[in-house]
Design a protein around this nucleic acid. Structure first.
Lengths: 130, 130
DNA sequence: AACAAAATTAGTAACGATTACTATTTTAGT
DNA sequence: ACTAAAATAGTAATCGTTACTAATTTTGTT
């Protein structure tokens, strides 16, 4: 299926590119609705999935039950706060070396790994959100 | 709340201890029902959550939309097959060293990390499941 | 500019995993 | 046996997400 332009998709991607907090579909919806009040939640989900499938954005599954999205597709890691649920970028050297270690004791083909960090973010540590 | 014995909880934990494939709540339910046909799905979920909260079992979130459970609480890693969805243990040296690297460029408190591997399991690689 | 085929949408229904609720039953200490 | 606390079965509700459908938009062609 050839991709056709859609104003909604553009709004969604632009919104995501202006954010660094890895919003959920619901948050994208709430915000994009301010520029296009008629947009539907299904359209947001469909376009986020489409953009992620095309590699234009990243879908993050951080174990909190809802997917987060990131327009920054450069390799980097993520941190999720167990207190407030916020997601933050975490720049560090890639640890792809662990794949070699993993392959040593494993029969199947290991294509990649998912790693993320958790704990208490700076704001919550300082009691700002309490 | 003091914990009281329950036959259902014992069945659930025993079933889990006899498996190495990290079953989902649904699979635990189907199997335990053969020994106790009256057990309800809610009881399975409640007890899996309770056991996980007490640290007697491990809850695995591997991004496939459903939680898996593991009675082996010793430190080890997991692999999930993108073809058949199976989950397998993966023994390798702990990579807690990455926490130090992560902490260097991060303000908050990093308590731990989640890492899992994905790819094609040995069976799927050999076309056994196809 | 009008035409048509394909893609996209809004709106709503459906879905799967999980949690919440409630009346009844079980456990365990007296 | 008596009782309070905990647990259960069964069901309803919730949440995030996907599927469906008729109407609209895009885009290439006349």
């Amino acid at each position: 299926m050839a991709l056709k332009y859609s104003r909604q998709r553009e709004l969604i991607k632009n919104f995501l590119m202006g954010r660094r907090d890895h919003p959920t579909a619901e948050i994208v919806y709430k915000n994009v609705r301010q520029q296009n009040p008629n947009i539907s939640l299904g359209t947001v989900y469909r376009n986020l999935t489409l953009l992620a499938d095309r590699g234009e954005i990243q879908r993050l599954r951080l174990g909190d039950g809802t997917d987060h999205f990131d327009a920054d597709i450069s390799p980097h890691y993520h941190f999720i706060c167990r207190e407030c649920g916020c997601v933050q970028d975490l720049r560090m050297d890639a640890i792809d070396g662990i794949l070699d270690g993993a392959r040593q004791h494993f029969d199947g083909q290991i294509a990649g790994h998912i790693t993320y960090f958790y704990g208490t973010c700076a704001q919550c540590s300082q009691g700002i959100n309490s």
